[in-house]
Amino acid sequence: METALTALVGLFYVVSIYLMLSRHIIRVLLGIAIFGNAVNMTIFTAGRIMREVPPIIPEGQSALDGVTANPLPQALILTAIVISFSFFAFLLVLAYRAYQELGTDDTDEMRIAEPEGEGLPPLGY
């Protein structure tokens, strides 16, 4: 099971990194969204996989009995999902505003901060 999941995680990484290497900002964003999923699944897989038994203590008992899924990676991922969503939303709005201000979605043409062919800085004292 872990093997199959590992292969799938690899595919998530490949696609997300491929998208991030693009020049179109929207593709980069899609890549980042998928990258979040890839990382979450990595944590999930590294914590080992268990079918269908959630880590919930049954009524009337004070601790888990039997084998259940690992709760720790789940707790880590839960907050990570929300954080990466906020981050994605922020990047999306940033891209959106950049497109409005600069009129392009090509990262090569976004050169306000680092203009092309900028001359030497002042050489005086």
């Binding site: 959630p54 919930i56 839960l78 907050t79 999902i81 929300v82």
Partner: peptide, 12 residues
């Protein structure tokens, strides 16, 4: 606290 759920999910 006792079943699946919680602040993050509810909030979403």
């Amino acid at each position: 606290h006792n079943e699946p759920g919680g602040g993050f999910i509810g909030g979403l």
